[in-house]
Each structure stands twice: as structure tokens, then as C-alpha cells.
Amino acid sequence: MTDNEPKSLPAKTELTAEQRRNKYNRAVREARLVTIDLRGVKFSADPAAPLARGDKTRRGFGSEIVEFQYDPDEKIVFSCIRWKINLKDGRKNIVSCQVDYSVLYDGFSSTEEEIVKLFVEYVARPATYAYFRALYAQLDWSAGLNSPPLPVVQFTPKV
């Protein structure tokens, strides 16, 4: 082999389910929450929203990870979690709310990015839900919506 020939890269080893679970559990034990900060809120309610009731009224909500940065040298992960909720009366959107939280954890030791992404999905995201649920309840009350509280949700890791 000459110096000009490409060198073969070592084959990427796939983790077994047990290895993934062990690494994920180690990340959960080692990680330390540094901060959860409110990054932004967008809320709008149609003036007729408090009057909307009945079979045509539907609520939908969900979340997504909109930013993810992992620095294995510094052993920190930063993520931005976005929660959204909307209330529709028929096809008309009468309430919408979007809330972003910045979350920072440190303390990871030689953890693969794949495992840290799982950690953010199943630990950081649920950590922000309680804050979102409380904030939305306050916004709902302030707007006079009197909608039922958001449900308690369960996040079960698929590791």
C-alpha cells in the first residue's frame, strides 16, 4: 500500500440492545441538569375561543427537538425543545401556543452521540413538559379559555 492510497476506516460496530440500554442507563446516572430556560412563547387566542365548546372542538399538542448540540470533549449537551398546542373549532384554529425551552446537561463520560440523543428525547424533553403544562395553564386561564388541563404524559424509552 502506498501513501496515496486511501486507508480503510475501521468498521462501525453496531451496539446490541443490551449495550445500548447499559450505555443509556449510564448516561442517565451520570448526567447533571445545568438549566432549563424559557426561550420563547407565541400565544394567540381568537376572541370567540372562550365560547367554543362542543363536538367540533379539538385540541392537539406535541413536541419536537429543534436544536441539538453535543460536545463530547466538554461532556455537555444543549438542546431546544419546542412544545406546540392548538385548539380548533371545526377547521378554524382558535388557539395556538408554541413554547421553546433551552436545556443544558453536563457530566457525560465518553458517551456516543446516538445515546445522548436518546437521553435528550427521553429525559430532557419530559423535563420540560411540566414547565410547559404549567405555563399553558396560566395562559389558558389568562385568556379565559377554561379548557381542561393538559394530560399527564408518560415517556417510555425505546432503548
Results as ranks from 00 to 15, higher is better:
residue 143 A to F: 12
residue 131 Y to Q: 13
residue 141 W to N: 14
residue 75 K to F: 05
residue 105 Y to P: 02
residue 99 V to H: 08
residue 114 E to D: 14
residue 102 S to Q: 13
residue 73 D to C: 02
residue 74 E to I: 08
residue 88 K to M: 08
residue 78 F to K: 15
residue 155 F to M: 06
residue 99 V to M: 12
residue 93 N to D: 06
residue 98 Q to I: 13
residue 102 S to R: 14
residue 148 P to E: 14
residue 144 G to I: 06
residue 92 K to D: 07
residue 96 S to K: 14
residue 139 L to G: 10
residue 154 Q to C: 01
residue 103 V to H: 12
residue 147 S to E: 12
residue 85 I to G: 04
residue 83 W to N: 07
residue 77 V to L: 08
residue 83 W to F: 14
residue 79 S to K: 06
residue 149 P to F: 09
residue 88 K to C: 02
residue 150 L to A: 03
residue 155 F to H: 10
residue 143 A to C: 10
residue 82 R to D: 07
residue 99 V to A: 11
residue 122 Y to R: 03
residue 114 E to R: 03
residue 98 Q to S: 15
residue 106 D to I: 00
residue 137 A to R: 13
residue 120 V to A: 04
residue 130 A to I: 09
residue 115 I to V: 15
residue 120 V to M: 03
residue 153 V to I: 13
residue 95 V to D: 14
residue 91 R to G: 06
residue 131 Y to K: 09
residue 83 W to C: 05
residue 108 F to N: 04
residue 123 V to Q: 09
residue 143 A to L: 09
residue 121 E to P: 00
residue 134 A to F: 01
residue 105 Y to S: 07
residue 136 Y to L: 09
residue 150 L to K: 05
residue 153 V to G: 02
residue 114 E to T: 04
residue 152 V to I: 12
residue 81 I to Q: 11
residue 119 F to W: 09
residue 84 K to Q: 12
residue 138 Q to M: 07
residue 90 G to H: 05
residue 120 V to F: 04
residue 104 L to F: 11
residue 82 R to S: 10
residue 146 N to R: 05
residue 126 P to I: 08
residue 110 S to C: 00
residue 122 Y to D: 12
residue 150 L to G: 03
residue 85 I to C: 10
residue 80 C to G: 08
residue 111 T to G: 04
residue 103 V to E: 13
residue 111 T to C: 13
residue 76 I to F: 14
residue 128 T to Q: 09
residue 94 I to S: 11
residue 131 Y to A: 13
residue 94 I to R: 11
residue 88 K to L: 10
residue 91 R to M: 04
residue 80 C to I: 15
residue 143 A to W: 11
residue 119 F to G: 05
residue 151 P to I: 03
residue 109 S to L: 07
residue 149 P to C: 07
residue 84 K to V: 04
residue 115 I to H: 10
residue 115 I to E: 10
residue 85 I to K: 05
residue 134 A to L: 06
